[in-house]
Design a protein around this nucleic acid. Structure first.
Lengths: 244, 244
DNA sequence: ACTGGTCTGTGTCTTACCGCACATAAGGTG
DNA sequence: CACCTTATGTGCGGTAAGACACAGACCAGT
């Protein structure tokens, strides 16, 4: 992870870019640009957090690791959101881990100035809370989806969610990695990925996935993807972006 | 659902009872006591919400219903919490349903006065946000648990969570009902319940479950139960209760 | 006491997914 | 190129849980 100085606008993170100029002006001096590589761990479970992170070109996975080592993803944060909600929700820590799932850039801000602005109760607070609600929807839907849908459907969902946050048609991740996200065996991913490939929806070669037919994936995915996406749209008001 | 007037203290809801006198004094006139029966629907998915609810002797289940009609629970709210977080998180609605799972009492408050107090940024806001974080943990853990643990383990977890919120050893609910919560078939619940009964942990007769051996259930349950409980304790500071 | 409805138990068949073991393939490095 | 590591494919047996079909058991009302 490397750190570099002062940002230019628009920043590329929707929460930051939706701020009124006045609030943005107050926060700006405290924003630092950071660069993440795939697999970087941003927060360890129950560990102290110093910063909140606003991804721009990176995206981050929220994971839980069981005592026996198996893992599953509960949520995915891209440039629509923020990592570290526990800092403004008042809990300081969370019992999960945040890991970089797509390398790229983010802005970070120390807990203290973030909280100062949050406590003013303006648009910043309002945006963070609405985003948090969107995240809750995402996590809830994951809970239900994990219970009721097949590996193949969940893989579609995961690919689409990742695609939305990558803004590129080629994703870099091994089946092993994906299996840890979906909470299934690696072979299960091999199998599901193979099916999707046979249908011409993706191509998969050694840690490189190409999304060939997004529409096809959307036709294949369970309703969960749409529910979360619609709710994100509703809560984060895509129309209101880039105010300044 | 029946409504009756003015409360006496302590109210029995931890969030309300943890408020400083000043804030409690402001909210008090807006609190109404309501009585819920099993199965009452408090919020419908994506429907307008007028009130937030602070359960005391009742508890409420947060559910998601799939297009095909199958359902699963994502969270359970008892007298430690509040139903209707979307009202202060700023989303107005959520894409799920809240249903009474244990009959009993609750306090409710109109959205407007609740928001007025929330926006003052005092202890009320602080408590609600911390509670929301605890709820997020619960939902996250449900997501992971749904993926990685057996019906029997999940049934134990659900029984313990419900028991914590009922403060009674006899629960009233059919296997059909439970199957909708766990997102499994009714027969799956029959099977799991039977196993628990054989081990002398519970007894089950036509919609009446007795918790016979709580320690035994705790020994049987997956880690998820403990994680969520510990996090609730940490975030809601059980020591700080009943301030006034 | 009969009847009808609501719960629960049981059986069989099928399927999705796990666990394991191993084969193959594709790159990277000396 | 030879070799090693990493990534993926495949096959087989086991198991948890799904779908469906009924049987029994309890309860409530007339």
């Amino acid at each position: 992870m490397s750190v570099s100085p002062t940002p230019t606008e628009p920043l590329g993170n929707w929460l930051l870019d939706a701020l009124p100029s006045e609030e943005y002006g107050r926060l700006k001096p405290d924003l630092e640009s950071v660069s993440f590589a795939l697999g970087d761990v941003i927060y360890e479970s129950s560990a102290h957090m110093d910063y909140v992170y606003f991804p721009t070109s990176s995206h981050i996975s929220l994971l839980y690791t069981m005592l026996n080592g198996s893992t599953a993803e509960m949520g995915l944060v891209g440039n629509e959101g923020v990592v570290g909600i526990a800092l403004f929700m008042g809990g300081e820590t969370t019992p999960n881990r945040a890991m970089v799932q797509g390398s790229g850039e983010a802005f970070r801000m120390k807990s203290r100035p973030m909280l100062d602005e949050f406590k003013r109760g303006g648009e910043f607070q309002h945006l963070l809370l609405r985003y948090t609600q969107a995240l809750i929807t995402q996590i809830s839907q994951t809970a239900v989806c994990n219970r009721l849908h097949s590996v193949e459907q969940r893989l579609c969902r995961w690919l689409l969610m990742t695609h939305d946050r990558t803004h590129a048609d080629e994703l870099q991740m091994t089946q092993e990695f994906i299996s840890n996200m979906l909470g299934v065996r690696r072979e299960g991913v091999t199998h599901a990925a193979h099916n999707l490939q046979d249908q011409g929806l993706i191509s998969y070669v050694r840690g490189r996935i190409k999304i060939l037919d997004r529409k096809g994936l959307e036709a294949h995915v369970c309703e969960c993807y749409g529910v979360v996406k619609a709710e994100h749209g509703r809560l984060l008001g895509w129309a209101n972006r880039y105010k300044h």
